[in-house]
Design a protein around this nucleic acid. Structure first.
Lengths: 243, 243
DNA sequence: CCGAGTATACTTGTATACAAGTATTATATC
DNA sequence: GATATAATACTTGTATACAAGTATACTCGG
């Protein structure tokens, strides 16, 4: 039985969420963290009993995870795909693609409001670091990029982002939780990089923007190890349910 | 009551489909063709009775359409968004983005098999033209681009494509049906353009590929009129259900 | 001991039932 | 006639029930 206090996903983010979203969010975290191993076959009934909900929200959750490419729906059962190094690189391919596209639009726009908004978010990130709040930091980090994308008002770019976001969010959450414990000084670099990004937008400097994006990517490249570390942390912290 | 013979979507493509997919495919066609007007509020119950299915598959369908950005799920009812000129341009933004990315990967690969496969598909398209089979032509057209994307084996590019595909497919279906009746000689141009695309891949010629992509885009630009024409055709052919 | 065939237990997809909440309509009161 | 309040008819989200199909395991025959 998986109860809310065992959740890897921040329960306070699920305040207004439906049972389906709750199940999806938690399953996603467990898959990406490796708690549920790649190759595992999930059955609707098993998940339903595990989460003490009916099959209806579970089906909803599985459909969602399948559209995010972390599970594959087959005739019998859903096969866990998970995130390997390859997938993480691919996600960043997409981010690079989207964000460079967005930037090209931004340079033709009035970006004063956006820059102000991003600065605010960056301040929030700094506070989150100060109080060692990994979850809040992750939230603001994701919000930072979402804010940039939303600025150009492009429904299909937003669509792509919406598909990518849940996986990104989970990945960042897990990664940041590890770093807060193990590599605290990573955050000064992350903040600097976001500052660079804001500057790039402000001055409409393509090169700086690309530089920032790649730095951000280098920052996570090879960071599947974070996921493994996060799993190490988890087996210590959470009691395992031997079904 | 909407029966299978009233379907705008080719029923033979729905052979192995679930009720949810059937409902989604048909609703999508009706939304994109303008048969269901933008702004309309859809209720699960109404759709369920219309299609003579239960709410379960209807919910599934609505979730899907929402993820494709052609409806918006609100607290009460789903609001139809539809496809305006803006959305069509945005879709082509994404296609341009994806396919240029794909091309950059292709130039580093062995593309012999791909070229052969594409040539086969193009032959099929020619046959479909010869026999004035708009649906078959559309199918092969969509398959052509999907084949190119699949060639690079990039799960997240494929994810984007999978999200885009249903809307693209519906749009192309409607557009091609009109053209077969009204603008038959469009097809020689479309075929030529696909030949150009194959050549571009074969010779790994970036410029030619971009040229082909843009030509393809110009070909649909301003083609919302096709949708309106398709709607004109529809009101003639299909009896209207005044609920 | 091995294979064919049947029984069984589990799978998904769909229908239905129910609960909680929201908008609308009607009614009553001023 | 206007406004407030209550009743009603919808809405979604979740649980449960059922049907059709699939894999597994078991039994029976060789």
């Amino acid at each position: 039985m998986i109860e809310s206090r065992d959740f890897l996903y921040p329960t306070k983010w699920l305040a207004k969420a439906s049972a389906g979203e709750r199940v999806a969010s938690e399953l996603r975290m467990r898959i990406i963290s490796g708690t549920i191993k790649s190759g595992t076959i999930l059955s609707e009934n098993k998940i339903a009993t595990d989460f003490a909900v009916s099959r209806s929200p579970v089906r909803e959750a599985l459909k969602l995870l399948a559209s995010e490419n972390i599970i594959r729906l087959e005739r019998m059962g859903a096969v866990v795909i998970g995130l390997t190094e390859k997938e993480i690189e691919e996600i960043y391919d997409v981010r690079l693609l989207i964000e460079t596209f967005v930037f090209e639009r931004l340079v033709k726009m009035d970006i004063a409001d956006l820059v102000k908004e991003l600065s605010k978010i960056l301040e929030m990130m700094k506070v989150a670091i100060k109080y060692q709040d990994a979850d809040e930091f992750s939230y603001q980090d994701v919000l930072f990029h979402e804010t940039i994308i939303r600025a150009i008002d492009h429904s299909y770019m937003l669509m792509i982002w919406n598909n990518l976001k849940p996986v990104m969010e989970s990945f960042i959450l897990l990664s940041m939780r590890v770093r807060f414990k193990e590599k605290y000084d990573d955050f000064t670099r992350i903040v600097e990089n976001h500052e660079l990004y804001i500057q790039a937008i402000e001055t409409k400097d393509r090169e700086k923007m690309i530089q920032s994006l790649h730095q951000n990517f280098d920052d996570v490249q090879g960071k599947v190890e974070d996921l493994w570390m996060s799993q190490q942390m988890l087996v210590k912290g959470v009691e395992q349910e031997n079904d």
